[in-house]
């Protein structure tokens, strides 16, 4: 096991930031910590890394107790912080070389690793640039390169895609998957459920300092009653028809606005057939039909009663 956290409690005065938090991460996983802002993700990471004192519990990394002086453990961890932690006065190359140098003292080996990291994040053309000359996306890539250049076994990425354009985000996510393919175990904290769904092999949903659910995305979705959401383009629908649609089996909610009928179902079978069958029977013409399975937001909503992005 790469990380084993047991009953972690962290308090700030009366506020309980982590409430008997447990976490187990296996080698080779991309583990997602998903939760809204303030749910305790970063606090958990900081406690795991011994950056914060905690009140209770144990943290083990690579089956050894983690502490501020556990330099052997730290040597195998790569950190990509939420805030971009680079020196504004050093060039792209110098920044990566500096952070890699904290882990790798041998100059020749380090030069090779820095080169590989630059290749990995695609910053070859920007090696001599100062960070202030880089766009937001390139800065994020530099931040990642600084965290992973020394080829750690465990990489912790704390919201690495905040305020990044979609293209850069895709590049970053692809890069994370490649790091995982190269053998690194990854912890990925985010409040973007699409990202977690896209890359994580297992996900923990956090709220108020607690783990409210853990599992693969399929396991998480199977925990809830919420089923698919079907949207149908319609020219017109009167209130009587809308009322009757709400009476169809397993429908929990139905709305019609802007020529779109949106129907939410609980878990069940033949929901699409039942809905389209009704429209056909009533001779209601319809256009395109969309069916969306439940998302992690639905999981979070059903478990906590809140939206992930609240």
């Amino acid at each position: 096991m790469v990380i084993n956290v047991q009953n972690l409690v962290k308090r700030y005065g009366d506020l309980v930031a982590l409430d008997h938090f447990n976490l187990q991460i296996n080698e080779g996983e991309i583990f997602g910590l998903l939760g809204p802002n303030g749910s305790g993700k970063t606090t958990a990471i900081n406690c795991i890394l011994s950056l914060l004192k905690y009140d209770k519990g144990t943290v083990e990394i690579f089956n050894k107790p983690m502490s501020p002086d556990a330099y052997d453990i730290k040597r195998n961890i790569g950190i990509v912080l939420q805030n971009i932690a680079v020196f504004n006065e050093l060039t792209v190359y110098e920044n990566i070389n500096y952070f890699c140098g904290l882990y790798i003292p041998q100059k020749t080996k380090r030069q090779q690793l820095v080169k590989e990291a630059i290749d990995f994040v695609g910053l070859n053309d920007y090696q001599k640039f100062l960070p202030k000359k880089l766009s937001g996306g390139l800065l994020r890539r530099l931040n990642i390169a600084c965290g992973i250049a020394h080829k750690p076994k465990l990489i912790i990425l704390d919201e690495p895609t905040v305020a990044v354009d979609p293209q850069s985000r895709n590049n970053i996510l692809e890069g994370i998957q490649n790091l995982n393919k190269d053998g690194a175990t990854i912890i990925y904290t985010t409040h973007y459920m699409e990202e977690a769904e896209h890359i994580c092999s297992r996900i923990m949903i956090m709220d108020n300092g607690k783990a409210v659910a853990t599992g693969t995305k399929e396991q998480l979705k199977s925990m809830i009653n919420t089923g698919e959401k079907i949207t149908v383009e319609l020219y017109q629908l009167d209130n009587k028809n809308l009322y009757e649609i709400k009476q169809i089996k397993d429908v929990t909610q139905a709305d019609f606005s802007e020529n779109r009928l949106t129907v939410h179902f609980i878990k069940g079978r033949h929901n699409l057939i039942n809905l389209l069958g009704y429209l056909q029977n009533k001779d209601i013409p319809f256009g395109r039909v969309y069916s969306e399975p439940p998302t992690l937001n639905d999981v979070f909503l059903e478990i906590t009663g809140k939206q992930l992005r609240d």
């Binding site: 950056l51 501020p68 330099y71 950190i79 912080l81 904290l102 882990y103």
Partner: peptide, 9 residues
Amino acid sequence: MRNICSPMK
């Protein structure tokens, strides 16, 4: 924080 996370004492 980034420096402290490193193995350098």
